[in-house]
Design a protein around this nucleic acid. Structure first.
Lengths: 176, 176
DNA sequence: ACCTGAACACCGTTCAAGT
DNA sequence: ACCTGAACACCGTTCAAGT
């Protein structure tokens, strides 16, 4: 019974580091294995396959999004959430797109989602309306952050656009 | 001066067909070349490289989005636009994500953008406010369509969510 | 002018074997 | 139980050569 030399966490550590340093296209099974000084086939025991490796990366990405603590009003909470989603997207533009390709209800996704729930609740939204409002608001934030990070925006100032969007959201929530 | 055997358009025709039939992962220089019964290196003269091939695919994708003709009020125009963006995303989920990775101001993108411009104008929005409103609205529609097609939504009914979003947009525009 | 062939430096993954 | 080596079936792209 030889002790396992590497763990899934170690694999994801070096994968995340590699993706951050050299971009998603540099993330290959072979490159990750080399970083760990291990045979490529060794990874399969720990992450399943390439898709499993990417899934692990998306977990980390969601954990990377900063979530508001206490001491902010609902407007400040939403502002911080938008800000940290945009910052995360800018740091990992390619990886960020993968968020569209998997359910928003994984265990790692509860942090951001609960944060939006909390803000909407604090804004006085009826409990039964919160899930839908969260889906719509998160979808907009995700699209905005992905657009900005991916280079879709060429006209306009993203900061000004986001400030304007914030006013619209506040207007809609105030009408409750 | 031998006549050229293939054109960029022909290359994109079979690439689009291949992507539609077997998905984006099946789009390789070699597979496209084989479909045309030509040497892989031949493609380089017509599309530059793999990235150029993908750029061509995104052109086609934007052209695929149905744009409202006359005879609809602004609300109907926006509804049709949202509907056809979602339909396009569902047909080409992987390809659709590439829209986030390039400027929204390419020649092929003017169709959809002008359509949104027209609807916002018909809704009575001040001319100077239209570009920003278009960016925000298109960003939401894009994020929604990408989420739906990519499988991010697991809770909720996308049709109901979109109908609700439509009411919010109408409310915001009515306040003008 | 346009197309080809061979070659280079990679991929993800299977399968049988090692310890 | 965990890791390895060799092999398979691919990639995109360069470069020199063909017609």
């Amino acid at each position: 019974m030889t002790p396992r030399r590497i763990s899934r966490d170690q694999v994801l550590d070096v994968t995340w580091e590699l993706a951050t340093r050299k971009g998603l296209q540099a993330v290959t099974m072979r490159a990750v294995a080399q970083e760990l000084d291990v045979n490529p086939m060794t990874l399969y025991r720990h992450v399943g396959d390439k898709q499993g490796l990417l899934d692990g990366l998306v977990e980390r990405l969601l954990l990377e999004i900063e979530v508001p603590g206490p001491g902010l009003d609902w407007r400040g909470q939403l502002r911080l959430l938008a800000h940290s989603m945009r910052a995360t997207a800018r740091r990992h533009p390619d990886l960020f797109l993968l968020l569209f390709q998997r359910p928003a209800v994984t265990p790692e996704a509860v942090g951001p989602r609960n944060a939006v729930y909390g803000a909407l609740r604090a804004a006085g939204l009826q409990e039964e309306r919160i899930p839908r409002a969260e889906r719509l608001l998160s979808t907009f934030m995700l699209g905005f952050a992905a657009s900005e990070a991916g280079g879709r925006f060429r006209d306009g100032d993203p900061d000004e656009d986001m400030a304007y969007a914030e006013r619209l959201v506040v207007r809609l929530l105030a009408a409750v």
